[in-house]
Amino acid sequence: MRIGLQVPKFTWDGGPAELGRTFGRIARDADQAGLSSFWVMDHFFQIFGRPDLDMLEGYTALAYAAALTEKITLGTLVTGVTYRHPGLLVKTVTTLDVLSGGRAWLGIGAAWNEDEHRGLGVPFPSTAERFERLEETLRIAHRMWDGDESPFEGEHYRLERPLNVPQALSRPHPRILVGGGGEKKTLRLLARYGDACNLFDGPDKSVIPHKLAVLRGHCDDIGRDYAEIHKTVLSNLYLTREGTAGGSAGESPAQAVERLARLAELGVDEVIVNSRVVATPGVFDLFAEVAQGLEGVVPAGR
């Protein structure tokens, strides 16, 4: 089982003048601790707390992290389909993949934050249209990463020549994570076009197996091998050396390994964690122990 890190908040000691150094240190430490993946949200307003708290643009932040790391994979969790024209989005992720040596993800979803759309003047179509745009964007991504330059004619997007040079280093393409657990649309699109899912680690542990069963059904419907899909879950992790009762009160590395390993029993391949102590010097020594502890945990079905 693997562990990844999402960094959703950027309000740290020192303010904006120190933000780059702190963020860079977090990325380097996560890489050196043996974490599998490094993620930022793709939002323009902060969604945790007040919207006017610090928020970095996702792909610029990932490009900065790419220059400071060597092995860890890099992605947004997740890009709203409405934020960028699909041709430019594929070019952006391809550039990240090339410059990072083949470590980029395309994390994408149907978008939801109407306030930041309206605040920045980005059109916010209906839910039905956003999902239509999501499917067209996924089709365009596959076409561009296949090297197909023929015109694309969709309902919402028209590309006369979807040229993409240089091509991505990842083969057959940067992995596509489709965020969300909607059973009729999101998981269906994931089964057809995606390489990974991302579900939420909530208190009801029956939800994840149910969502994965729905995903398996969509795969069966189209003849897709369900085992090909990388199953990820977003969770929280507050690490301390001693630990206490676990959860929000703090967990030791051993307690964290025990809790996260139970997700593997549900069929989860990778847990991506948020941590409120991520900027604390020395905390990645504890993360390294968790990563090492999970190395021998085999997800159910693998």
Rank of each mutant, 00 (worst) to 15 (best):
W12H: 11
P16T: 10
F23K: 01
R25P: 00
I26R: 08
I26V: 14
A27T: 07
D31L: 03
L35M: 15
L35Y: 01
S36C: 09
F38S: 02
F38E: 03
H43Q: 14
I47P: 05
F48R: 12
F48D: 12
G49R: 11
R50S: 15
D52W: 09
L53M: 12
M55G: 00
M55E: 14
L56V: 13
L56T: 09
G58I: 11
Y59H: 13
T60I: 11
T60M: 06
T60H: 09
L62D: 05
A63Y: 03
A65F: 09
I72R: 06
T73R: 15
T76N: 07
L77F: 03
V78K: 06
T79A: 15
G80D: 07
H85F: 12
P86F: 09
L89E: 10
L89K: 02
L89D: 10
L96E: 01
V98G: 11
I108Q: 06
G109F: 11
E114F: 06
F124C: 04
S126E: 06
E129I: 14
R130F: 02
F131D: 06
E132K: 02
E135N: 07
T137W: 08
L138N: 07
R139S: 07
H142W: 14
W145P: 05
D146F: 06
R158L: 01
R158K: 13
L159S: 09
R161I: 04
S170Q: 14
P174R: 10
L177M: 15
L177K: 00
V178P: 03
G179W: 08
G179F: 00
G182D: 12
K184P: 00
T186D: 01
R192I: 14
G194L: 06
A196K: 05
L199M: 08
F200H: 09
F200K: 09
P203W: 11
K205W: 13
S206F: 02
K211D: 03
L215E: 08
C219Y: 03
D221Y: 05
I222G: 01
A227F: 08
E228D: 14
I229A: 13
T232F: 01
L234F: 12
L237M: 13
Y238I: 13
G243L: 07
T244W: 13
G246A: 00
S248W: 12
S252P: 08
V257Q: 07
R259H: 14
A261N: 03
R262I: 04
L263N: 02
L266Q: 15
S275R: 08
V278A: 11
P281E: 08
V283L: 00
E295S: 15
V297L: 08
V297D: 05
V297N: 06
A300G: 04
G301S: 04
